[in-house]
């Protein structure tokens, strides 16, 4: 087995490197836009405007209540019909991944903000701080401590979910496995290499997060 692993790596490492680049690129784009969209959704959800709250509720429930693979198929089938511009498979999938992750990001941010003790807001307001200053200077700095760890977990989820793009043979790590497997017919070693690379990426991120979390908790008890 080790022998097979090293032979595949020696000959096809370029396929995996290319796949890793694809995975990192897909992840970066998804993380960026999902965080942006998720933040907007969370702001709407926390607004005092009831219809906006309902819309976000329905959005989040539907996205969280259906499988991400189904959502990818759905957007892949639907978007080319709706959009007058031609969308590539990659674009459809990115949109599906962003929509999916944004629902989770929205919930993470909402929960993080609502977890800040209501007394903090009252104290800010009672000092005569405006609602905006109370949010920016009192609530948000404390909410970020709640949000960041969960958000980085969600980033890791997003990275793993980009593997679903292999369904459409878009360049990323799981597609690399499929490429190597179909040329060498050595399925398990080819898969293991992809798995190891995923693990190295996510493990590095998790470790980095833990370090960061400890720094954040420095002035907590």
């Amino acid at each position: 087995m080790l022998d097979q692993l090293s032979r595949i790596w020696a000959k096809y490492s370029f396929v995996y490197w290319k796949g890793l680049l694809g995975t990192l690129w897909l992840s970066a784009v998804t993380v960026f836009f999902a965080t942006l969209l998720g933040t907007v959704l969370a702001v709407l959800k926390l607004s005092k405007f009831k219809p906006a709250q309902w819309i976000v509720d329905i959005y989040v429930e539907i996205i969280r209540g259906t499988p991400v693979l189904l959502q990818i198929y759905f957007f892949w089938l639907l978007l080319p019909r709706l959009a007058s511009i031609e969308l590539t498979d990659t674009q459809s999938i990115i949109i599906a991944l962003v929509v999916n992750a944004s629902a989770y990001v929205c919930e993470i941010i909402r929960a993080g903000i609502q977890a800040v003790d209501v007394g903090q807001q009252e104290a800010g307001l009672s000092l005569g701080l405006t609602e905006f200053h109370t949010f920016m200077r009192i609530i948000l700095p404390q909410a970020i401590k709640n949000i960041l760890p969960a958000l980085v977990n969600e980033f890791i989820n997003m990275i793993k979910q980009t593997s679903l793009a292999s369904v459409f043979f878009i360049n990323e790590l799981t597609t690399s496995y499929r490429t190597v497997q179909s040329t060498t017919f050595l399925a398990i070693p080819a898969l293991l290499i992809s798995g190891i690379i995923y693990f190295v990426v996510t493990f590095t991120l998790t470790r980095g997060l833990n370090f960061f979390e400890k720094r954040l908790k420095a002035n907590d008890r």
């Binding site: 003790d117 007394g119 903090q120 104290a123 009672s126 000092l127 005569g128 700095p141 404390q142 401590k145």
Partner: peptide, 20 residues
């Protein structure tokens, strides 16, 4: 409302000091 509250100091049972 904010300007009014600036003239009224309030102290709470649970202190509500800003931990950050």
């Amino acid at each position: 409302v904010s300007s009014y509250r600036q003239k009224i100091g309030m102290v709470f049972q649970h202190f509500n000091v800003f931990p950050h």
